[in-house]
Design a protein around this nucleic acid. Structure first.
Length: 391
DNA sequence: CGCTGCGCACAAT
DNA sequence: ATTGTGCGCAGCG
């Protein structure tokens, strides 16, 4: 997984570029990292990709070109679409970070209410025509060069989504959440599909398939990934996204991003608010996911137990990145950084006590409480209960 | 040359 | 109106 040092280097670089008022694009980031630390650009971009997947770094399309943001310094929140707003509001209320690098050069990142970065478009968004197509295969490009070619006039740069962003293959496998090097190769079909779902019109036939995509690819973590780990569990991606304060529109969460963009477009399968409510009531993300899964794939019911099992085991096998990803997906991207910094892996997570979460991570009390009560505790309980079950 | 600083036009509220 | 962003250019080494 990504070396912590790389994370710092890249984050620092992004910060300095920003403070210098220079666009933090791939080229500049690589150059600066190389200059400062001597590492190869390829290596840097690879690490950058990982950070993007982990949402430590946000890839955005701003003013026609790709930019990278230090997620810890960015706090955006949802925008409209809120049928479910009410619900998620509770959850999201407090996730701002603290542990970001202290330099608050960027300043205000405070409350959820502040949304600024919204200016950015999800890079993953492709041209309308493109998406209409269903999904062309994205050209694996980007890897090497920064997309810099916002053609004059047409600024819908398509760049991002494609090659560059490997789908968020969440930490599926407990230790290897790492994406391959070639963006192309490792892209599990997951995102592909959901990725470009944005501007579809509700009536568009694509919209329908979109649903499918959401369900079976981007989403069902169960199918491929560690339960509960997806950045946002598919169907409800819209909701979850917002919960986490991430608006799909602007970030480029690798894959799923704008699935919900036209939220009104049509009701996604089942994910509606009651599901969310369920979630809020106490289910942890994993459970929630499973529940979802259950609902939509009756056929797969039998697999559930297996998944559950997987989850349990995974917890022990979760790497630091997996944990961070989970926390991030649960709606606390900023706090996830703290988990990473403190090197909390699955085992550590199981050993965490309330006080550890509240004070040991140096994160704000509000988010800490939520994380502990809703996630850490839940995961621990689930884990131990399952264990007993087994015995 | 490359790196840095920054005024100011932009973009999105 | 506000805010973050980053182009384009000047200055420095």
């Amino acid at each position: 997984m990504s070396e912590p040092m790389y994370r710092d280097w890249i984050l620092d670089t992004i910060d300095s570029l920003r403070s210098r008022k220079a666009r933090p694009d791939l080229e500049r980031i690589c150059r600066m990292v190389r200059r400062r630390h001597g590492s190869a650009p390829e290596q840097t971009s690879e690490e950058l990709e990982k950070l993007i997947q982990e949402q430590t770094v946000l890839k955005v399309n701003y003013k026609g070109s790709i930019s990278y943001r230090n997620a810890a310094k960015v706090v955006r929140r949802s925008r409209k679409k809120d049928d479910h707003t009410a619900i998620r509001t509770t959850v999201e209320e407090a996730n701002h970070s603290d542990l970001s690098n202290g330099d608050s050069a960027l300043g205000p990142i405070d409350q959820d209410e502040t949304e600024h970065l919204e200016n950015e478009l999800p890079v993953s968004m492709e041209t309308d025509s493109t998406m209409e197509e269903e999904e062309e295969q994205e050209g694996p490009d980007e890897d090497g060069h920064e997309g810099s070619s916002p053609s004059p006039g047409g600024e819908d740069a398509v760049q991002g989504g494609s090659g560059a962003s490997p789908p968020y293959s969440a930490p599926c496998s407990p230790s290897s959440s790492r994406p391959g090097h070639s963006p192309v190769s490792d892209r599990p079909s997951t995102c592909k599909t959901s990725k470009r779902s944005s501007p579809l019109s509700p009536s568009s036939p694509l919209a329908l398939r979109q649903n499918d995509c959401v369900c079976d690819s981007a989403f069902c973590p169960a199918d491929h990934g560690p339960p509960g780990m997806q950045r946002n569990t598919g169907t409800e991606d819209g909701v979850r996204m917002e919960e986490s304060g991430l608006t799909s529109d602007q970030l480029v969460p690798d894959c799923v991003d704008e699935t919900m963009k036209g939220s009104d477009r049509q009701p996604k399968t089942s994910f509606p608010s009651d599901d969310c409510a369920k979630y809020k009531k106490g289910m942890d993300v994993a459970s929630y996911v499973m529940a979802q899964d259950d609902v939509k794939n009756d056929v797969k019911n039998r697999e559930i137990s297996v998944k559950k099992e997987t989850l349990r085991q995974n917890l022990l096998l979760w790497s630091v990145a997996d944990v961070a990803t989970y926390i991030s997906a649960a709606g606390f991207p900023e706090q996830a950084v703290a988990f990473r910094t403190q090197e909390i892996d699955g085992k550590s997570l199981l050993l965490m006590q309330r006080s550890d979460v509240l004070t040991g991570l140096s994160i704000r009390l509000g988010p800490a409480l939520k994380i502990y009560e809703r996630h850490v505790k839940m995961l621990q309980r689930t884990h131990f209960l399952d264990e007993e079950d087994d015995l």
